[in-house]
Design a protein around this nucleic acid. Structure first.
Lengths: 294, 294
DNA sequence: CTGATTTATGCTCTCATTGAGCATAATAGG
DNA sequence: CCTATTATGCTCAATGAGAGCATAAATCAG
């Protein structure tokens, strides 16, 4: 066994005004990180205590993402200790606007298909990728599958694949030899935006088969608010009636009897999450009811 | 940042004679582990090099499982460094019988529903769990969902949930206060059987949406061999005709033109995995065609 | 050589789930 | 009362999954 240094990295996610937010430091260029405290029972518990102490946020769901190793400054020699980063994702509710929270899609504008901008951005990316792929059939195939080109469907869970492909294609500022044209979007030094991509990928996958959305929702909510939150994470519009059908079929929520006050239209019923069924139930039949047009 | 010790733990899995095997040490009571070597580019690559050097096995698929922290001997005081274990799962092909490989289901006999034994064992477990749950409705519900009782379906991916439930219910030798009756099965000291459970859970989940089975298969194979391998991992019998339909529909394999030599019956066609499509394709529509009876 | 046995492969039929959109209900504002 | 707006209910077609029958191609016992 070798002696190394270690730290915890936290990706804290909340949804506010139908927009996913992430807690950052240093003008949005860094993620919260801290030492692996001794005396904690487990990494997970240590993570929770540390985050809740630092941020006053209650974490509803915590999940280990990945453990990275990084060679320290090469000048220290090849046998010198290294740094291990254990990354976690945490979900929380945000009462009101607070310092440091930034829109997650500022870092991944190509991942948000809810408004019309993504279409043209992804078209530009497709052109740049096609230049990178050249006549290499394997590369072309990979681009098509990853970015949903050539008739392939867009798979929202491939966040990390897409990030890595853009990185390899030298289309990001943090690529090894960044090209002339770079994909727009806020960047982060080192591999931190990669950790962020891992978190989004995991969250999009998880939201389908475990009822973790509710950790991002207030105590009571309308089905429309729930849908908007899922859409915010999945990054694409859903079919309203079918979304209701699926949610109600799963019996994950119960009516409170109250109705929401709304400026317009028929008032919506308020629902509450049935915590009893949190165990092994999935959110929807593992398929999101994607809507064709926004 | 604090100084800690770290090691890599490997769960190496192969399938031979329709039985999943895991590489163990120390009479099956330990898993291979080694130091985190300095000088490796990444954890993943370090893992691969180290394993292939030690075992002469080529690893087809590698996946990080989880990172655990363990307090070292308490006598060292609360501020002493701790041990971090980064666990990986690796899939490999096994040519012939080798030292140290043991049947995975020796450690989890309740997970294998391919033969008839599991039925009675799970009935015994259900009785023991019911004693533990008592009148606690939440516990009863959890047992039912996790072990497929009271009309709930058996979910083969809940390997880790089941292991943890048995651990909490004091039904394992490694539980805090082991009860009088213990679930049969080979055990491991400390939390190593837990790591094994994590690996099996991950593998069962992964096999559905990524074509990783092929890493466990020889170059060419019949659809029946493929099915038996999937069954070995999923731990339950599948519907033969529907399995073929799904595999062929995904266009993951192509005929070699050859036929397998068989002692009896019509010879089966040999297939080969189409590596071109490994990228983002899933194995089957994420659902296994479970057969009702064995 | 013939028919029984065994395994592989092809195909159908039904039922459940999903995708899509029309229809109706309940509110606010003129 | 009429219109705009949002919520909710419902239907219909297309697709996918579960189950089992039917046929094909080999071996083996007489």
């Amino acid at each position: 066994m070798s002696a190394i240094r270690s730290e915890l990295v936290a990706v804290l996610i909340a949804v506010q005004d139908e927009e996913p937010l992430v807690l950052t430091l240093d003008q949005g260029r860094n993620l919260p990180s801290g030492p692996l405290e001794t005396g904690h029972r487990s990494l997970q518990r240590g993570m929770r205590l540390w985050v809740e102490q630092q941020t006053q946020c209650h974490l509803g769901h915590i999940e280990q993402l990945y453990t990275f190793a990084e060679a320290l400054d090469a000048t220290e020699g090849p046998d010198e200790p290294r740094l291990i980063r254990i990354s976690y994702m945490g979900l929380t509710r945000l009462e009101d606007a607070q310092e440091g929270w930034r829109g997650l899609y500022e870092y991944f504008p190509w991942e948000s298909w809810r408004e019309n901008g993504a279409e043209s951005l992804n078209a530009e990316i497709a052109r740049a990728l096609s230049g990178w792929a050249g006549r290499d059939a394997a590369r072309q195939w990979r681009c098509a599958e990853t970015f949903g080109l050539d008739g392939q469907p867009w798979n929202d869970e491939l966040v990390l694949h897409r990030y890595e492909l853009l990185w390899e294609a030298e289309l990001l500022p943090e690529s090894r030899n960044p090209g002339v044209w770079l994909v727009p979007g806020r960047s982060m030094p080192s591999d931190r935006r990669r950790i962020l991509a891992t978190a989004l990928a995991r969250l999009r996958a998880k939201i389908r088969y475990r009822p973790v959305v509710f950790e991002l929702m207030p105590e009571t909510f309308t089905l429309w608010q729930l849908q908007r939150t899922v859409e915010a994470i999945a990054g694409r519009p859903l079919h309203k009636q079918n979304f209701r059908r699926l949610i109600l079929a799963q019996e994950l929520v119960e009516e409170t009897g109250e109705a929401a006050v709304q400026p317009q239209g028929r008032p919506a019923r308020l629902y509450r999450f049935r915590r009893e069924v949190i165990g092994t139930r999935q959110l929807m039949g593992s398929k999101l009811p994607i809507a064709r047009s926004a």
